[in-house]
């Protein structure tokens, strides 16, 4: 009841906030029923796949400057429990935007993570690219500069990650990316230095060929303990018509301590831009006997 009251209060606050400035409320609910066969055990689970709610907005502050903000929280719509809480923090930042670019600070995805663009067709499901790639980090205490839109099809990002006595051995990290996005082609290079105890070099490409989207990535990672992990990733999405989308992706990485592979195939039925039903089959293998097969069907609503 207390949570319900808080949500009602938050909604009321948003109404009054909206009257003062443009605040965009957004989010999505994504839930799937999944059959899991992993390491000899099997079960049927109801999964909430990164369902979230957030607000974003901007406020002109004069002299050609605009303050931008975003507060995004994840909630598990299957059981209401996300790491012991109802809501957990996702991307949260406050920044200042001008013709020279955007300077922002908070907790959010590193340039290397966002450089993947939209090649991960099973993002937030068991077939997520993070199964085989390091560098998929959303980090605390990050300050980032992003080049302005006027640079044209190029977007460069440079971020500094303050460890603040955290898990990275007191070493601050740097993450940077350079992306080119024009019409059908997307290409990005990214690098992490001392982010989440790893150095990462990533190359990403995607091309829209009519109704087919091709995506690929290659990555080299070196962990602080000296282990290396090289990997590649490829995906294909085929829009059959206004409703049906077929998709598949494969990725693998090899390191001194583990070899990992992920294969997914799936189909979406798109009702509208905001609602789709989906089904997927994913096979995740590794060399430490943690193999898993997953079959799921789900529904997603965006708002």
């Amino acid at each position: 009841m207390r949570v319900k009251f808080c949500l009602a209060a938050a909604a009321a606050t948003l109404v009054s906030a909206h009257a003062a400035a443009d605040v965009t409320l957004y989010g999505k609910a994504n839930v799937s029923l999944q059959y899991t066969d992993k390491a000899g055990d099997n079960e049927t689970e109801l999964k909430s796949n990164a369902s979230r709610i957030g607000v974003m907005g901007s406020e002109a502050i004069g002299s050609g400057l605009t303050a931008i903000y975003r507060f995004e929280y994840e909630t598990s719509i299957d059981d209401g429990d996300k790491d012991g809480q109802t809501l957990t923090q996702r991307n949260i930042y406050l920044g200042v935007q001008s013709k020279a670019g955007t300077l922002m600070a908070g907790k959010f995805d590193t340039p290397t993570k966002t450089a993947q663009g939209k090649i991960d067709l099973f993002d937030n499901l068991v077939g997520d690219i993070k199964n085989v790639f390091a560098g998929e980090n959303r980090v605390n205490n990050i300050v980032q500069y992003v080049t302005p839109e006027s640079v044209g099809p190029f977007t460069a990002k440079l971020a500094y990650v303050l460890d603040e006595g955290g898990s990275n051995g007191d070493e601050d990290g740097v993450s940077a990316s350079l992306a080119y996005n024009a019409d059908a082609l997307y290409v990005a290079v990214a690098v992490d230095q001392e982010v989440d105890e790893a150095d990462v070099y990533r190359l990403v490409g995607a091309y829209q060929l009519g109704s087919v989207q091709l995506g690929g990535a290659y990555q080299q990672a070196t962990y602080d303990n000296g282990d290396d992990a090289d990997g590649f990733f490829g995906s294909v999405k085929w829009r059959l018509d206004d409703h049906w989308v077929l998709k598949t992706q494969y990725g693998e990485s090899s390191s001194d301590f583990n070899d990992q592979k992920t294969l997914s195939v799936g189909a979406d039925y798109v009702f509208t831009k905001k609602v789709k039903a989906f089904t997927y089959y994913t096979q995740n293998d590794d060399s430490i006997n943690n193999d898993g097969d997953y079959l799921g069907v789900g529904l997603e609503l965006k708002f």
Partner: peptide, 18 residues
């Protein structure tokens, strides 16, 4: 205009917010 939650997943989201 794609849904806001999708726009925010793009690499250049901060430049597309407006």
């Amino acid at each position: 205009c794609e849904p806001a939650v999708d726009m925010l997943e793009s690499n250049d989201a901060v430049n597309r917010m407006s």
